[in-house]
Simulated assay, not measured.
Amino acid sequence: MPADTVHLSPSNTATTGRGMSRAASAFLLFAFFWIVAAAAFSGFAGKWGLRDGDPRFGVAAMLENAAHKPFVYRQLVPDLARRLDAAASERLKERVAKRFRPDEVFAKSQPGDTPGERFRYAIVYYLSFLSLLGSLFVLRRILLHFNVSPLAAILAPTAFALSFPYLQTVGGYFYDTVELLFASLAFLLALRGRLLVLAALVLVATLNKETFFFVLPALYPLLRQRFTRRMAWCAVGLLVALAGLMNVALKFAYLDAVGGALEFHLMTNIEAYFSGNPYFRVETTYGLVGPSRAFVGTLVLLGIVLWRAWPLAPRLVRRHLAICAIVNLPLFLAFCATGELRNLSTTFTGLVLLVAFLIDREASLRTGLRAPVPETQASPVLKETRQA
């Protein structure tokens, strides 16, 4: 046998084959999620752009620190764009400006005239898209933790992502997808008991949107699976305190900005919801006339998912969603524009879980196969084994 010949045993060949198969599967999953995220993000960009040209919350105003309160507090992505712009060469900016032409596709896009303006716009644009893409992978990992079938773990995030532009009714912003990524990451980190990483995430997520601390109380049932009751409550309290401190720092940093820290809509919303006006409104999404605000069809759809999937969900998920509702619904009624469904964001991770449980149930009914049993009270050791 020549000296440079490598002999592969059957076991080595099998191992290599499995490795290549896993790599191929990962690539296919990435390609599929990329297409899904691109389609969903295009639905958002075509509908809202980056709120270009609006002096209160448009992307140019955000990048120039000139937006009104409370929008000006949401500086994570604009600050990254400014820092990358300062570090990038003029040649790179010119190349990006030449190739990046969203205004040729979306009528509402106004990326600017100079290479610097287009470069900053591109950073915001792609960070928003990549956040949506990343959230699909995080949501899939969460679903697999709950013993959802591999197919449902792909289909449920896909269905939610494609529905997301419909939830961005009345308004939609580039930081919505970043918020979705951080909320799902917080859910996953709480499930795994990674408190230090979760604390760091809270600081960054609050810089993206100052209301992130409303996500944190609903993490208690997840942390309770890993820690004692006292430890779980202390962890939630510490996380809320960290988010609150970041919030105070943001308020002081933009104390002189135009506008108010909150917009109060309680009486307007009560009148609107009792009048029935928000239930039959329409707007254009994906280039087609579709539901707007609290459209009756949207509410029926969400009601059916909740009705059918709630009994299938483990107690952990039900408690999480119950806390989300207790925290989010009063805030939604008091401070959000009428029917602005994107502001129910604390419930979105739980909603994806319900959709996945429902997919598995429907598949089992149609095929006669037993649906996977969602993981509920498995020990931390067993959870770590499954994750490995």
Rank of each mutant, 00 (worst) to 15 (best):
V6M: 08
L29E: 13
A39D: 08
K47H: 04
G49W: 00
D52K: 02
F57T: 08
L63G: 01
L63H: 01
V72W: 01
R82Q: 07
L84V: 08
F106G: 00
Q110W: 01
D113I: 07
L136M: 10
I142F: 01
S149Y: 06
L155M: 14
T158D: 10
F160G: 09
F160W: 12
L162K: 07
T169W: 01
G172N: 03
E179S: 14
L181F: 15
A190F: 04
L191P: 08
G193L: 08
L201R: 07
V202C: 01
L207R: 15
L207H: 15
V215I: 12
L216P: 01
P221S: 13
T228E: 09
R229G: 14
A235K: 03
L242A: 07
A243G: 12
M246C: 15
L250I: 09
A261Q: 14
A261P: 11
L262A: 13
E263G: 08
H265D: 08
M267W: 15
Y273D: 03
F274D: 05
E283G: 05
V289H: 03
V296Y: 04
I304N: 09
R318C: 12
R319E: 15
H320Q: 13
I323A: 03
L331Y: 04
L333H: 06
T338P: 01
I359E: 02
D360N: 07
L365S: 12
T376Q: 15
P380F: 06
R386P: 08
